[in-house]
Design a protein around this nucleic acid. Sequence first.
DNA 1: CACATGACTGACT
DNA 2: AAGTCAGCCATGT
Length: 117
Amino acid sequence: MKDFKDDSKSDFFNQIYQVVAQIPEGRVTSYGAIAKFLGAAKSSRVVGYAMNASHSLATPIPAHRVVNRNGVLTGKFHFDSPTTMEEKLKLEGIEIIEDQIQNFKSLFWDPQELLAK
DNA sequence: CACATGACTGACT
DNA sequence: AAGTCAGCCATGT
């Protein structure tokens, strides 16, 4: 059973989870943004893979706030139900049409915000 | 141990 | 402008 602090296995996943866990409610970010923030802009796929693996985590992370760079809910089928992701985002005040986040540009949250904080 | 797959992205044609 | 290709890295078979 993996955990947030299990850096002995993979620092990358660990950091990804930390960033995702810090995404403010009602905001979203992209896989690439997280990857770039961690210094591996070309490893965006690993970020997505980390989300897929997040099911094994003891601590649930807001993976529904992470979408691709177009603001499309590409990973919605990986949730309990294909509508889970969309429903959660809507509950946070995010408007979604056809799996596409509306006003994505404004709702986008850059991991850099963590540093400014 | 080697090959294939994937919640992505950027570059090239 | 839209479609295609290659890169990147961990996991599963």
